[in-house]
Design a protein around this nucleic acid. Structure first.
Lengths: 341, 341
DNA sequence: TACTTTTGAGCAATCGATTGCATATTTAAA
DNA sequence: TTTAAATATGCAATCGATTGCTCAAAAGTA
């Protein structure tokens, strides 16, 4: 029984062959006879041999580890994407290392470094919302290490990316609100320069214009989009006496804040004001009334991201293997946005 | 610039010393002179040296990797614990590998094996609710690999564990409902033989008895505790015509289901029936009315679990370093359980 | 029978860092 | 001045698996 770990050398010794032969047999190398392979496999089982991935990683340069970098692990969207990634990675015998940037650019840089140090075979990331310099991501690319971005992306990098069609999601949502009779739709967005909010705003604007409704900048509220921010935004609009009959928020949390404030002001949803959010956070279906929102397809996004990643990993020419996938989000219509006959 | 990666040998060559000296210098070994250390550090920076953790792991037998096994990564409670673990692990230069068992005992076994194969330095796990055989965990212990369990534990294993005081949480919640005037409190629980539901049931029963309220088995509903299950349980009770004035559910999801059904039956919460859940899932504060629940201290639990883990890792004698931490949960009282004057 | 191929395995170097055991150089003590 | 004790490095093996190159034996060809 020894110290517990059997190595290829132990197998080799028992069988009176060399470790190289054992290694080749285990890797099903055609240069080894069937007979030898059979014996090796049998002995491996008998000795309860477990390959040492670390040794193999050192020699082969492949760690079978993927680094996943998300702003925070405990947000439903991100943890669901991680789940999707892990689903696929495990099927292919890869392990997922998870790290968080906490939306802090400094920490994001360190974390990328740490992942690189851990010798991951590649990185999947969603960019923190305060990140404006992308040198740390460029560094990954320069090292020839596969990189795939999802959801929070940037155009400054030539990388594979997986996103949902934020523009479409926002356009459809806004259109839906208009169809329900709304003409003065407030929009909550973020001043942050990240793709998702920008695209959603664009979708909102276009839908408004296409319906020949004048765009009123007074109806746009910028904030950090947390629940509290949504509350303030709503209060702002109400206090300024701005006329509005709907709120379309780029974040479910912010729209939740709006709902609370409306309740407090005894403004009825959806009778007087209709609401829609974005993200399909679990809670949106549990509120009273349930909130209309846009599903971001988080688990599929994780799976597609992982698939994109492994394609890239296999490809010879990283450059030309770069491509962008756009998933269609789904408008989930619930009571908060429905016309009350 | 070479191929990009500088090794200790490159540093050694430039400085006309040996790799051993460089290695010692980088590890701040007292046997190396301050002067040499300074030079090595300087050259390391100059060559942009990044230590190869894989090589170090192979030689030292320490991978600086922790395996974290959870039923599913995208449940708020688990992802928050993972976040807490990651917080601490990162401070100590450890990386976290995450894997999921999907509540499937078979998959759980495979996953443990995979983590062991990845040569993690230790494992932190929460047991799947269908797991009844613990041999795979015993195997971890037999190999002398540190193991810490959190939340979903078992008494069949002599390991360090971190849990909340489920009994206390349930007792306090039930007591609170009684204080609000309830006498016929239904309890939703699971038939699964796992510690958390058993303890919560015990807390419920004791609180009832201590208040001299007769225990009525008709008020106990067993299910898998998902939202749909909560709905059925509530329907059951209503349809059977069982008298009740409160529901205390061991799961927030199930109590959410109950709330929906009560709404549909036009039974007013908290006027006619009071509600309390367990878990403090984010949505519970967003419902109408907001739901009273028990906070499980997920992020602290993650941090404490990680701390327990690292203590164990450092300790010489794994056996005696085994200990159990019990965190106090917090009853979060919200409108759903409050007496309406 | 003599010569070329094919097949199956072994040898030894390698991946990069670590570490027990020398060894050389100083410094301190006798 | 001689010897003992520190101090600073070097040497070489090691962790376990992989792989280019070499070589012997068996099979095929002329």
């Amino acid at each position: 029984m020894k110290k517990g770990k059997a190595t290829i050398h132990d197998i080799a010794e028992k069988l009176n062959i060399t470790a190289s032969t054992v290694s080749r047999a285990l890797n099903d190398n055609p240069r080894i006879s069937e007979n030898t392979k059979k014996q090796v496999l049998k002995m491996a089982k008998q000795l309860n041999y477990q390959p040492n991935h670390i040794a193999s990683a050192l020699r082969s340069g492949k760690s079978k580890l993927i680094g996943v970098l998300v702003p925070t692990a405990n947000r439903n969207f991100f943890s669901s994407v991680v789940r999707g990634i892990e689903d696929i990675a495990n099927e292919l015998d890869y392990k997922v290392i998870i790290s968080q940037s906490y939306e802090d650019p400094e920490k994001e840089i360190q974390t990328v470094d740490a992942l690189l140090n851990a010798r991951v075979d590649g990185i999947i990331a969603s960019i923190g919302k305060n990140t404006e310099n992308f040198d740390h991501f460029k560094k990954i690319l320069e090292k020839g290490i596969p990189l795939v971005l999802f959801d929070r992306i940037t155009n400054e990098l030539e990388v594979s990316q997986v996103v949902i069609d934020d523009y479409y999601g926002a356009y459809e949502t806004t259109k839906h609100l208009i169809e329900q009779g709304c003409r003065r739709i407030a929009h909550f967005t973020s001043p942050k320069k990240i793709n998702i909010y920008r695209e959603r705003l664009r979708g909102y604007e276009d839908a408004i214009r296409d319906a020949n409704i004048p765009f009123d900048p007074e109806l746009i509220e910028e904030s950090d989009m947390q629940l509290e921010d949504g509350r303030s935004s709503m209060e702002n609009i109400i206090n300024k006496g701005i006329e509005f009959d709907a709120v379309f928020s780029s974040s479910d949390y912010a729209v939740m804040g709006a709902l609370q404030v409306l309740r407090e002001h005894k403004i009825s949803v959806p009778n007087q004001v209709k609401l829609a959010g974005f993200g399909n956070e679990p809670f949106t279906s549990f509120t009273a009334p349930p909130i209309t929102t846009v599903d971001q397809k988080s688990i599929p996004m994780g799976r597609v991201t992982a698939e994109t990643f492994f394609e890239l990993l296999k490809s010879e020419d990283k450059k030309s293997a770069t491509h962008k996938t756009v998933l269609k989000p789904e408008l989930i219509i619930r009571e908060s946005s429905l016309k009350t006959n």
